[in-house]
């Protein structure tokens, strides 16, 4: 039995996922970061993107809308503002959100609070599309 990581993905509303896994990949602002067992203690900020979790021959995919990761003694906590597993993603809905956000962004055209919010919506929708589009069967 190889050493494993206890991973937990939680959002303010519920626990999305808990499992014993061998490898976790998360999206940080400087690029993807992989966590293996015996990783040094770490706290990091996540951007919207995909989280991959590997154990045995299986990989679970999730879309997260940004949040935090804490690694400590083989325990990985991912605090996400929003998170869904690949099979739960509503691709159609995400596509609509993306289009709405893009149109609205074009209409406004200048920076401001609403633009920041829309940019987040857009990132979140794109993250869902990337994960949901290619890995929905998992």
């Amino acid at each position: 039995m190889p050493r494993t990581l206890a991973v937990e993905i939680v959002t303010p509303e519920r626990i999305v996922y808990t499992n014993e896994v061998e490898f976790v990949v998360v999206p940080t602002f400087d690029g993807e970061m992989g966590v293996l067992p015996l990783h040094a203690p770490l706290v990091g900020v996540l951007k919207p993107g995909e989280v991959r979790v590997k154990y045995g021959d299986t990989t679970d995919w999730f879309a997260v809308s940004g949040g935090y990761i804490q690694v400590h003694e083989d325990k990985v906590i991912i605090l996400a503002d929003n998170a869904v597993s690949a099979s739960q993603i509503d691709v159609e809905e995400a596509r609509r959100t993306k289009e709405r956000a893009q149109e609205r962004l074009k209409e406004i055209g200048h920076a401001g609070d609403e633009v920041d919010g829309l940019a987040l919506d857009l990132d979140w929708a794109e993250a869902q599309l990337r994960v949901g589009g290619s890995h929905a069967q998992v």
């Binding site: 400087d30 040094a40 203690p41 706290v43």
Partner: peptide, 25 residues
């Protein structure tokens, strides 16, 4: 008290993100 932590990208940046989330929570 935990051993040294690695911060990604930096402790200040993490704190800056974290405080608003704390208020939200």
């Amino acid at each position: 008290l935990n051993p040294e932590y690695v911060f990604e990208p930096s402790a200040d940046a993490v704190l800056e993100h974290l405080l608003p989330t704390y208020v939200e929570t």
